[in-house]
């Protein structure tokens, strides 16, 4: 596998690097915006599970375009548990979206004002077990929805990644409690072969008397096991909308490296390599041939538990430099 082999396989990966996005998912938000005009009138936006930060990049770039030079200053807050490389114009909070303190910090950055838009492109580290991944993704979406109820203004918009699996109708029904308009959207930059889609929830209208509460996850009340058995018209299914121009690149297709005759292909390195991936220490050991092996004479390295992995040993071979 050459270093350009992924460029051949994945056109959006290549374009993302060429246009300076940190991940190809930037195109997904751009295509969603194209269809829903998500950024119109938005002054305060929150990016949940932001790392590596491509959606924050889109938010800050597009908002600038939208407002022009003289417009009101747009505030963008990016929240992630992991560290993220800094982005100009984006305030970062390294925190847990299931904590009230995180919600409070977001509001503090907005000087007490609620957010106009909350986006979440978080996905679990895919384990390869489909139902586990689907379950974790659903939990992540509900956690994002929960913190959103703390920070979003009535009438605001919430966009999140969803896996269209077995329990998807349950998620739809929970979203419909809080938003009057829920649409399932699939940008064309998201592969047909992926079960991923995005829910665009417009017009936040919490039920009367609803008090946001982190410790009592809102999923419980409707976790009715009979719910999923409903048939026909009783099922909650939200409308579907494919986003993005039909003339856009087909994400399932391979394209030649040289796209137009005039421009010579040149390899572009990833915009932002990952910071502190979980496998960093393991990769460092492997690179230095320190992984324990059967015939290795020496003991495996026995680190103390509070050792801080040094930041200069990022293993680029293994990193998913750009998340999909």
């Amino acid at each position: 596998m050459g270093r350009s082999s992924k460029d051949k396989r994945d056109i959006y990966y290549r374009l993302a690097k060429e246009e300076g996005w940190r991940a190809r998912s930037a195109f997904k938000l751009l295509q969603l915006d194209h269809e829903f005009n998500l950024f119109t009138g938005v002054n305060r936006a929150v990016d949940l599970c932001a790392a590596p930060g491509s959606w924050s990049q889109v938010l800050s770039r597009e908002e600038k375009v939208e407002k022009g030079e003289g417009g009101e200053e747009v505030k963008i807050v990016a929240v992630d548990l992991q560290a993220m490389a800094p982005l100009p114009g984006v305030t970062q909070i390294q925190g847990d979206i299931t904590k009230v303190s995180t919600a409070q910090e977001i509001i503090r950055h907005f000087e007490g004002q609620p957010a106009d838009l909350v986006v979440c492109d978080g996905a679990p580290d895919v384990t390869g077990l489909h139902d586990v991944d689907e379950y974790i993704q659903a939990q992540l979406l509900l956690a994002a929805l929960n913190i959103t109820t703390h920070v979003l203004k009535p009438g605001g918009t919430f966009v999140a990644k969803i896996f269209r699996g077995k329990d998807v109708t349950l998620l739809y029904s929970q979203l419909k409690i809080f938003f009057s308009g829920v649409t399932c959207a699939k940008p064309r930059s998201s592969r047909n072969s992926s079960i991923e889609a995005f829910v665009v929830c417009q017009n936040y209208q919490p039920p009367e008397g609803y008090v946001p509460n982190m410790s009592n996850p809102l999923l419980d009340h409707s976790y009715d096991v009979d719910f999923n058995q409903l048939e026909g018209p009783n099922r909650v299914i939200v409308p579907f909308l494919a986003c993005g121009d039909l003339s856009a690149f087909d994400s399932d297709r391979t394209y030649p490296l040289q796209l137009d005759a005039g421009k010579q292909y040149q390899y572009t390195p990833p915009t932002q390599p990952p910071i502190h991936p979980p496998y960093q220490q393991a990769c460092h050991l492997r690179k230095n041939n320190l992984l324990s092996r059967e015939d290795a004479p020496t003991d495996c390295p026995n680190q103390s538990r509070d050792q801080d992995p040094s930041a200069d040993n990022i293993c680029l071979n293994d990193s998913h430099c750009l998340r999909s």
Partner: peptide
Amino acid sequence: CLRVLYGH
């Protein structure tokens, strides 16, 4: 933590 085993 008694041991950290890296080998996989």
